[in-house]
Simulated assay, not measured.
Amino acid sequence: MSLIMSYIGRKGCVIAGDKRRIAYFGDKSNREILEEELHAGAIKNDDELQKRAADLGITLKITDDACKVRSIGEVVVGEVSFRSPFETRRRRIYGTTNGYQIVELLGSDISKMEKGESSIVVFGNKKTKEMANEIIKKKWKTKTTLKEISDIFKEVMVEVAKKTPSISNGHDIFIKHPKLDKKEAQKLLRDTILRDVKILQKWREKLQEDLLEKAESIKLASKILNEGEIGRVVSIDENRLEIILGKNVQAFDINWKPLAKPGEKVLMLLDESADVVVGDLAVIENENLCLKRNNSSLKCDFILCKSD
């Protein structure tokens, strides 16, 4: 769901992109029906989109703050992405004076690349591309400045947004005009792409690490004890109690780092006025951490979980 237009020529380059993202939630076959109707131009505005989604039992999340075009030094970049449950495909255009490269990525790996020296390149679904190309063709002049091209792209965005909810009214535009010959342009593009893809790789690695950490946290959170025996008191120092954990109990800090395994000792605090003896059983009853014998409350700064 995007419209990205780029002009690359001997005097510089211009890129424009809309800011809409649409996420679909619901039955897969109905999602595909809705997307197909949207791509074909059968749905004309936001109200029709919401109504048709409701008819198909699809929930939509629509945002208009996406950054689909950007600049890296003297290079402009535009990206459309296609997400599946297993992978993300990206199609990017990198442009500067006298050169462009179109890169297709599977995850963070380059799967296809093409390059050229001058062109007008439009990314979008079939309908938005048809509408954009028609307006560009109608407005284009033989001698057109970068500023005039920028104005044409703005007009295209406004006009296309009136006819389809697949793009937003808002858009971003960048103009770059460094002095580069064709050879210099391709070298700059190649170096920029390599750096940019490396950043994407690092971002994906970090994202994967975060997802694994979250998955582990969710897994551990499902094991939090809210009822049962914890362990027995093995030493007493005023209101500080050493408790040896039971065979099915383990302790983690608040960041889910392991503190103590079954059979290892942990420190808990007891109300100073409470009665306690070595051998007392610590339990969780009705979600309260206490001594079994007299229900005296205990405190700890860690998480108690069932062990595997």
Rank of each mutant, 00 (worst) to 15 (best):
C290E: 13
P262V: 01
L60Q: 02
V75A: 07
I102T: 04
C13G: 11
G124C: 03
K214W: 15
I4L: 09
S307D: 13
Y7L: 08
F86W: 10
L49T: 00
D64V: 01
I193N: 12
D253A: 05
R20I: 05
E272C: 01
I236D: 08
H171G: 00
K179N: 15
E114I: 06
V14S: 07
D191C: 04
P165S: 06
Y100S: 00
E134K: 11
G41F: 03
A42T: 11
A185C: 09
W140A: 12
G231N: 07
E74F: 09
L289N: 07
G263K: 03
E213V: 09
F123H: 09
F174M: 03
A42L: 15
C305F: 05
T63V: 08
N30M: 05
L200M: 07
T96V: 07
S296T: 07
E205K: 11
K187E: 15
I230S: 02
I193F: 08
F25M: 05
A40W: 09
K112V: 01
I284G: 04
K198Q: 14
D27Y: 06
Q50S: 07
E285T: 10
C13Y: 04
I72W: 10
H171R: 04
V156E: 03
K129E: 13
E37C: 05
K299G: 03
S84L: 08
A54R: 09
L188H: 00
L270H: 03
I284D: 10
C290T: 03
F25E: 12
V121W: 11
K139F: 14
I230T: 05
R70Y: 10
S150G: 12
G95V: 01
